[in-house]
Design a binder for these strands. Structure first.
Length: 575
DNA sequence: GCCGTTTTCGGCCCGACTGTTTTCAGTCG
């Protein structure tokens, strides 16, 4: 039983306790336990009680629950809670703007158990009749339902990657000689993915049976000799295709897409007297095979350089491949620093030194510790005094010579009027300031744009953090003139962030590409909230690659000295 | 449910915002 499953059961326990209206601190303890399990480096199910109780936040009860999950796969407590409510009720809780009290009321007073029940009730005007609710709440629920439908069946890149990787491991064990690889939107590094597309070459026909026998399969949608589809736990649809080795490259190309890229490629093939399909590239004249085993050969035969999957969106990559001007894309290993992370001083899970050591072990040469500022009260944000004291502690750790350099920074809130949450002299005393919006998302486009422009106008702001505030599959970006923001950041000599959190990836690929074209400096940051967060940089790097970024476009590919010198506070503003 | 203790109880990050209210409840972060 892995930590993710332990975390899931604890979180579900917390959610159900919340709907029941239990003691909020008990609920918090379970949520906290879920976080701990999800972030812990060792398998908690293997620890004994003493070992578990050494972990802060795990006491007598949680230790027992975790052991029970490790031994039996679930807890009696959790099973009892699940039995008290319809199993679909947690779907309601995950709607934006619907919390445990609302779910409890909906269930108790209207017998609402499913999203369909809820939608009917909202359409019938039955929600507004409830005490404490009105027409606006009803509209809010309908909007949340609509958003959920729009996002249904899609998954965050990181989640799709994890689910796909587990399935690939399982298949490789059963067909050691075969090549198994992920294709589709996952291979292209899209920020969200629909189906999990897998390709197997050189595999025995029995692999299809193994595939539908994967323990996490909930339903078999189709089962043939060369293609099968299943529904996997977590709401993923997974497709597996079996192809002959001589078609591997063609199949990879075909199933990686995008559709638009493929159409353009096939069009080009026709123009050259070829036919391109998932089995290979063939001459029209005599149907002779020109290429098929390797992707590179197919592109080559079409007069093109091999196109990295992240660029296959028909955004000029075919012309660039023909002209041999494709960029040398950034790799995650090019990143030498990470400029956005949190510690236990605010809402992080680990202290300064732990974060520094973990970053060093992740291969980084320098980091900036950027805890939240005071207006983010729920995160225990820093006021000026604490920010300065925290900076002293960060610099003290830096002075220890851990083999990684530390910058003392802050993630300073941009207040609704565009002023910053900390006084200028405080910001000036730090090494780096990331400024971000965390509140009042409902401002009008012009108001929001003016707000962020005003913040960028503050000379102490070095980096604009997660510039559009989007939460993938959950919340749209707030309305803002991104182009004006990018230009303002460039004029100010500041930098703009690609936040690597799987649910943010903000800037997105399109806007990051715009920043590149405007030659606005970009940083790729993890926004880590624990020592395990540095792995997220690969998702930020995926966005960067989709934006055609080269190492030189990104400030934190530079050495520590060069990076520091490139910060706005150490540059003369362009006159 | 966890924790720390002046140690077996009492405190536990809380402010902003919204929509419902007429003094506040629920949600979010």
């Amino acid at each position: 039983m892995d930590n993710a499953e332990i975390a899931r059961i604890l979180r579900e326990t917390a959610d159900l306790l919340e709907i029941k209206g239990e003691n909020p601190f008990k609920i918090r303890a379970y949520h906290n336990g879920a976080d701990i399990a999800g972030n812990h480096p060792h398998e908690l199910g293997l620890l004994d009680e003493a070992g578990l109780r050494e972990i802060p936040g795990i006491g007598k009860d949680l230790a027992a629950r975790i052991q029970e999950i490790g031994q039996t796969g679930d807890t009696e407590f959790h099973r009892q809670l699940v039995a008290e409510f319809p199993p679909t009720i947690l779907d309601l809780l995950h709607l934006q703007g619907v919390g445990p009290k609302t779910v409890a009321t909906l269930y108790r007073d209207l017998g609402i158990r499913t999203l369909d029940d809820l939608e009917r009730a909202a359409h019938d005007g039955r929600i507004r009749a409830l005490k404490g609710m009105g027409a606006k709440k009803e509209a809010l629920i309908l909007k949340a339902l609509d958003e959920r439908k729009r996002f249904a069946g899609r998954h965050l890149l990181a989640h799709a990657h994890d689910a796909s990787a587990a399935l690939q491991d399982y298949l490789r064990e059963r067909a050691p000689g075969a090549t198994i690889e992920a294709v589709g939107s996952l291979r292209r590094g899209c920020d969200t993915c629909g189906d999990l597309d897998l390709l197997a070459t050189g595999a025995p026909a029995t692999l299809m049976d193994d595939f539908i026998g994967y323990p996490l399969v909930e339903r078999v949608l189709g089962h043939g000799d060369t293609k099968s589809s299943v529904l996997v736990q977590g709401g993923f649809q997974a497709d597996l295709r079996l192809v002959a080795p001589e078609s591997r490259g063609a199949a990879m190309q075909y199933f990686t897409g995008s559709k638009a890229h493929n159409i353009a490629l096939r069009d080009r093939a026709i123009g050259l007297g070829f036919k391109l399909n998932e089995y290979g590239l063939f001459r029209v004249a005599d149907e002779g095979r020109v290429a098929g085993e390797r992707e590179e050969d197919i592109y080559d035969a079409l007069g093109l350089a091999w196109v990295p999957p992240e660029l296959r969106e028909l955004r000029g990559e075919i012309e660039a491949a023909a002209a041999r001007t494709l960029p040398r894309l950034l790799e995650v290993s090019d990143l030498r620093g990470d400029l956005h992370m949190h510690t236990t001083e605010t809402d992080g899970k680990d202290g300064i030194r732990t974060m520094a050591i973990a970053a060093r072990e992740a291969g980084l040469e320098y980091i900036a510790i950027t805890d939240h500022s005071q207006s983010l009260a729920m995160a225990n944000g820093l006021d000026e005094r604490r920010a300065i004291e925290h900076a002293q502690r960060i610099r003290a750790v830096d002075a220890e010579g851990l083999g990684i350099r530390l910058l003392a920074g802050v993630e300073c809130d941009i207040l609704p009027d565009g002023s910053l949450d900390l006084a200028d002299d405080c910001l000036a005393a730090l090494d780096i300031v990331v400024a971000s919006v965390h509140s009042a998302f409902n401002q009008e486009r012009q108001e929001m744009t003016d707000r962020v422009l005003r913040a960028i106008g503050n000379p102490h702001v070095d980096v604009l953090g997660h510039p559009t505030g989007r939460k993938l599959l959950k919340r749209q970006a707030y309305p803002i003139d991104v182009e004006a923001i990018i230009d303002a950041v460039g004029r100010a000599g500041a930098a703009i962030e690609i936040n690597s959190q799987p649910h943010r990836l903000d800037l997105n690929d399109v806007h990051a590409s715009l920043a590149r074209q405007r030659q606005v400096p970009i940083v790729i940051s993890s926004d880590s909230h624990s020592r395990n967060g540095f792995g997220f940089l690969r998702w930020g790097a995926a966005v960067a690659r989709r934006a055609w970024l080269q190492p030189a476009d990104v400030l934190n590919t530079r050495s520590f000295a060069e990076f520091r010198a490139s910060l706005r506070r150490h540059r003369r503003p362009p006159s």
